[in-house]
C-alpha cells in the first residue's frame, strides 16, 4: 500500500504552528492532570488570551494600511488564527471542566463559541475545496464583473442567432434565451460544476445534426457561449459561497466577544 505523507501545505498549514499547537495542548493537558486544583480563573484568563490571539488576524486584515502589517506575511497570521482558535476550544473545555454550563450566560457562551468554531471549520473546508473546483474551469473571472459579462454574452448570443435557421432561432428564444439573460445562482453547481449543462444543450445538439453551413457554425458558437455562461454561473455561485461564509463566522465572533465581556463584567461586579 502506498502511503503518502500528509501534505500540510495542501491544507494550508506549515509544520511550525502545528507543532506549537500540539505542544501547548500537551502542556495544558499535563498541567490539568497534575494540578487538579488549578484556579478556574487562571484557566479562564488563558482562554481569554487564546480568544484574543484568534481575533488578531481579523483585526490585522482591517489594518492593512499600517506599514508593519504590510511587512509581515498574511499567510502566517492566518495559520496562527487557526492554531489559536483550536487552543481556544480546548481552553474553554478546561475552563468549564468539560461540563455543560448551567447558567443562561454560560449556555449562550458555549453555543456561540461552538457556532463560531464550526462556521470557521466550514469556511476552512470551503476555502480548500471551492478554489480547486473553480480552477478546473476554463475561465477565470472577477466576481464583480460577472453581471457585466453575462449581459455581454446575452447580446452576443442574440446576435449569433439573429437571421439564422428558424428552428435554431425558435429553440434559442424558447429555451435558451432565459439562460443567457440572468445569472443562474444555483446550488446545483456545488454538486455538479457543469450545472447540468449537458441536459440544457440536448435540444441544441439534436438540432445541430440537421444544420449545415453557416447555421451549423452559429449552432457551434451558441454551444460555446452556453458553456461560457454556465462557467460564469458556476463562478458566481461558488465565489458567492467563498465570500458569504464569513457572514456566518464574523458576526458570531463579535457576539462571542460581547458575551465574554458580559461574563467578565459579571465576574468583577459580583
Amino acid at each position: 500500500m502506498n502511503i503518502r505523507a500528509l501534505d500540510l501545505q495542501k491544507i494550508g498549514l506549515t509544520p511550525g504552528p502545528l507543532t506549537l499547537f500540539f505542544a501547548i495542548l500537551g502542556l495544558a493537558l499535563i498541567s490539568a492532570l497534575l494540578a487538579r486544583d488549578v484556579s478556574q480563573t487562571v484557566l479562564g484568563a488563558v482562554t481569554l488570551v487564546f480568544l484574543f490571539l484568534s481575533s488578531v488576524y481579523g483585526v490585522r486584515r482591517r489594518l492593512r494600511v499600517v506599514a508593519a502589517a504590510r511587512a509581515s506575511q498574511a499567510a502566517a497570521w492566518l495559520q496562527w488564527h487557526w492554531v489559536a482558535s483550536g487552543l481556544l476550544f480546548f481552553g474553554f473545555l478546561f475552563h468549564t471542566q468539560g461540563r455543560f454550563p448551567g447558567s443562561a450566560l454560560g449556555f449562550c457562551l458555549w453555543l456561540v463559541l461552538l457556532w463560531t468554531l464550526i462556521s470557521g471549520l466550514l469556511g476552512w473546508a470551503i476555502q480548500r475545496w471551492v478554489p480547486r473546483v473553480l480552477a478546473s474551469l476554463s475561465t477565470e473571472v472577477l466576481f464583480e464583473r460577472i453581471p457585466e459579462l453575462v449581459t455581454e454574452l446575452s447580446i452576443k448570443a442574440q446576435k449569433t442567432v439573429a437571421g439564422s435557421h428558424p428552428s435554431l432561432e425558435n429553440l434559442f428564444h424558447r429555451r435558451l434565451l432565459r439562460r443567457f439573460q440572468n445569472i443562474n445562482h444555483s446550488w446545483v453547481f456545488v454538486f455538479d460544476i457543469s450545472g447540468g449543462l449537458a441536459k440544457h444543450m440536448k435540444g441544441l445538439h439534436y438540432l445541430m445534426g440537421f444544420l449545415s453551413g453557416s447555421d451549423l457554425e452559429r449552432g457551434q458558437k451558441l454551444e460555446s457561449l452556453l458553456k461560457t455562461k454556465a462557467e460564469l454561473d458556476a463562478h458566481f455561485t461558488l465565489q458567492s459561497l467563498l465570500r458569504n461564509w464569513l457572514y456566518w463566522h464574523v458576526p458570531a465572533a463579535f457576539l462571542l466577544w460581547a458575551l465574554v465581556l458580559v461574563h467578565l463584567f459579571t465576574l468583577i461586579y459580583y
Partner: peptide, 14 residues
C-alpha cells in the same frame, strides 16, 4: 514602500 511585494506577502493563502 520598502518591503517585499504586498501582493505576495498579503495573500493569506500563500
Amino acid at each position: 514602500a520598502g518591503h517585499e511585494p504586498a501582493c505576495v506577502s498579503q495573500c493569506p493563502q500563500g
